[in-house]
């Protein structure tokens, strides 16, 4: 797994209080990992901070699973 993927997983485990085994690429933040709309906003902000990127709202809407977060950040992280 890439370094970015590792970091993304760690943030999700910390913020959502879930087990590492639950954080699979297909896992949806809201449907599988118990996040509500505010949790999702907080996750996106943590990604922005950690990877020094700015994720526009229209793109943030498309980040709903662990895998989508990893691919977006692998593409855009500086």
């Amino acid at each position: 797994m890439s370094e970015i993927a590792e970091k993304v997983k760690a943030i999700i485990i910390d913020k959502l209080g879930v087990e590492a085994s639950e954080v699979t690429p297909e896992a949806s933040f809201t449907n599988d990992l118990g996040a509500d709309s505010l949790d999702t906003v907080e996750l996106i902000m943590e990604f922005e901070k950690e990877f020094n990127v700015s994720i526009p709202d229209d793109q943030a809407e498309n980040i709903g699973t662990v895998g989508q977060a990893i691919s977006y950040l692998e593409e855009h992280a500086k």
Binding site: L38, E42, E48
Partner: peptide, 11 residues
């Protein structure tokens, strides 16, 4: 100067 306020801050 970038506003990164936590969504849980106000509540």
């Amino acid at each position: 100067g970038t506003p990164r306020f936590n969504p849980f801050f106000i509540p």
